[in-house]
């Protein structure tokens, strides 16, 4: 063991900063999770606050809104995953099959661009475009005679998840496809040539050669995204909320912000965060196991 370390000492030194980073910033602060089981008071500190066990977890689960929160959070993230996961793959496969380099570059740049818009701006754009009476969309539909009266999409709780998910896809699809494009560039060109000799067209190439080659990448990313399923972003849901769509737009993180952080209830917020993480970890492990069972390599 020690001999092997000595032998590869250069590599160990190389990995040391990253290791230190993880220990310092990811493992050391973990003890702070204790406040989820305490009635935390800043004056008494993390070690000195009163221990109250699972009180905050029970409190969270007994909220009337608990199941609404779970339902909204889950349905938003599952929808995001189902709709948002395959589209970057399709885009990457399509881009990979494009022969004109110039066209490919243009499409890539255009699809990446929205990634650099911040969420606040994105929601601002949504609000401006879809504003009930004065928004561009409302005006266009009205002048085209396809609609009469205000466009009620922002206030409709049923439309909230579609707006949320598809604006997210619009923003993220180009960025999400980069990793698949990278994986596709590693596909052996001889496989393509061999398939072409056998008479495969572009569609066949993508389906039978490209897709199987990037399958490990897809599975890894899928497992990772399943691990974030309850961690639906706070910012966007919060910004898109209004009093008419609240029944669909109140998710765990926005609720925690309003009743936890703004009221200095750090213990409660930590408890809900821990609850989230526990479920996410379980999901991640389950999907990982399933992937292995079906003959794919998992993430560990």
């Amino acid at each position: 063991m020690i001999d092997r370390v000595k032998e590869n000492i250069g590599l160990y030194i190389l990995v040391l900063p990253a290791l230190l980073y993880v220990i310092l910033f990811d493992y050391m602060p973990l003890y702070g999770v204790l406040i989820a089981f305490e009635n935390f008071k800043p004056i008494k500190g993390i070690w000195g606050s009163d221990w109250i066990g699972l009180y905050h977890f029970e409190r969270f689960m007994h909220l009337d809104i608990f199941w609404v929160l779970i339902k909204n959070t889950l349905s938003l993230s599952v929808y995001s995953l189902l709709a948002g996961f395959p589209i970057p793959i399709i885009l990457a496969l399509a881009l990979n099959s494009v022969r004109s380099e110039r066209f490919k570059k243009v499409v890539q740049t255009v699809t990446y661009a929205p990634h650099f818009i911040s969420t606040v701006i994105l929601v601002g754009m949504l609000n401006v475009f879809l504003s009930p009476r004065l928004g561009v969309v409302s005006q266009l539909l009205n002048s085209a005679g396809m609609m009469n009266g205000p466009l009620m999409i922002l206030t409709n709780p049923d439309a909230f998840s579609h707006l949320y998910v598809w604006s997210g896809i619009w923003q993220g699809v180009g960025w999400g496809s980069i990793i698949y494009l990278a994986a596709l560039s590693g596909v052996d060109p001889s496989l393509h040539e061999a398939a072409k000799v056998d008479g495969a067209n572009k569609f066949h190439l993508a389906w039978h050669v490209d897709l199987p080659s990037i399958r490990p990448t897809i599975v890894t990313l899928l497992i990772l995204s399943c691990g974030g399923i309850l961690g639906i972003g706070f910012e966007k849901a919060f910004l898109m909320q209004n009093s008419l769509n609240l029944s669909a737009s109140e998710v765990i993180s926005t609720y925690v912000y309003k009743s936890g952080l703004l009221q200095s209830q750090y213990s409660f917020s930590a408890a809900v965060g821990l609850f989230n993480s526990a479920i996410n970890l379980t999901l991640l492990l389950t999907v990982n196991k399933l992937a292995k069972k079906f003959g794919q390599s998992g993430i560990f």
Binding site: I65, L246, K258, Q263, F268
Partner: peptide, 22 residues
Amino acid sequence: MEKQRMTDLGQSLNDYIKTTIA
């Protein structure tokens, strides 16, 4: 504990009133 209970109740009551009247 009472204060936390009051916050929780207030939040869900107000959300419900606000949405229903809207």
